[in-house]
Simulated scan of single mutants.
Amino acid sequence: MDALHVRSVLVTGSDRGIGLGLVTRFLEKRDPPEWVFATSLDLEGSHGKKLKKLAGHHPNLVVLQLDVRDLKSIEAATRKVEEHVKEHGLTLLINNAAILIKFTCLVTETAENMERQFNTNTIGTLQVSQAFLPLLKTAALRSPMEGLSCSKSAIINMSSDFSSIEKMSGWCLSQVVSYRCSKVAVNMLTRCMSLEYKQFGILCLSMHPGWVKTGMGTLLVPTSVKDSTTRGWIEITLLSTA
């Protein structure tokens, strides 16, 4: 884990679940980032208030309101981040914000569900990445590191095992067609990013966190948030020297 040296990191959708777990792992590092940016859709809600309370114990934790579906909200968050990172740019962006609206099957799936899932899970990931691209470019340019690395400049998009067309994991248990499709689209978006942003020195990848006990996935209690984010932490660390 000592191989990962991130000056700044932003995790979307980080007031609960996997996002909060990732933020916690960064704060627990022996050499934590200079800035950890955590976001919440509603800072005055119960989860947002808990996040602000956590910030009271960590001066390097900055809590931001962010709705990944709203360009004005994204732009406001970008300005706040830039105020803190200044000329150093943003080292690592983790697009974690996502929703699973209903446990629908193919027969009951609707255009409305599909639209809502794509607006948050896919389009939200695109818009946030576009907005923070200039800061990620700055971090890459200022880094003395060669090649691609999470310690240099990177975008990590949280994917899902449900997005595997080959495996079709859990189909008999839960079809969730709109969610699966939105996450397949995230994987393609990540691939496009990896091809386009490589020229700027920005690493882009998708990460599957496992089937985790969160508000979105509690069935069978397969993996705890701590176990999942610790495993993800190890993967990020390995990629820091890619």
Rank of each mutant, 00 (worst) to 15 (best):
L126I: 10
A242W: 13
L126C: 00
T230L: 09
L189M: 08
V212F: 01
E112N: 12
E235N: 12
R142A: 13
P209N: 07
L20E: 12
L43E: 03
T120C: 10
D2K: 13
T122E: 05
V62S: 06
S206L: 06
K29I: 00
S194A: 11
M193L: 11
S224D: 08
L189H: 02
L27G: 01
V212M: 04
N113A: 02
A98T: 09
S194E: 13
R30P: 01
K102W: 07
T125E: 01
A131W: 08
Y197C: 11
Y197D: 08
E235H: 13
L22Y: 09
A140R: 07
V36P: 00
T218C: 12
V63F: 07
D2C: 07
D161C: 10
I236E: 02
T91S: 06
S228T: 07
S149R: 14
G124R: 08
L61A: 08
K167H: 09
T120W: 09
V36E: 01
L4P: 00
I156P: 02
R7Y: 11
S73W: 11
G170K: 08
K137S: 08
G210P: 02
L27Y: 03
D70M: 10
V186F: 03
W35M: 07
G170T: 03
C204Q: 11
P33D: 04
S153W: 08
E115K: 15
L22F: 12
E34S: 04
S194Q: 11
T223M: 15
M188E: 02
L27R: 07
S174P: 00
I101H: 09
L90E: 13
E112I: 09
E75P: 00
E146A: 15
L173P: 00
L219W: 11
L93T: 05
I123G: 00
T223V: 14
S182Y: 11
L195A: 10
K198C: 10
A77E: 03
I123H: 04
L27C: 00
L106R: 07
L93P: 02
N121D: 14
M168N: 13
A76L: 04
S178T: 12
F37I: 01
R116L: 14
G201D: 04
A3S: 12
R25Q: 14
N96T: 05
D227Y: 01
K137D: 05
A38Q: 00
K86W: 01
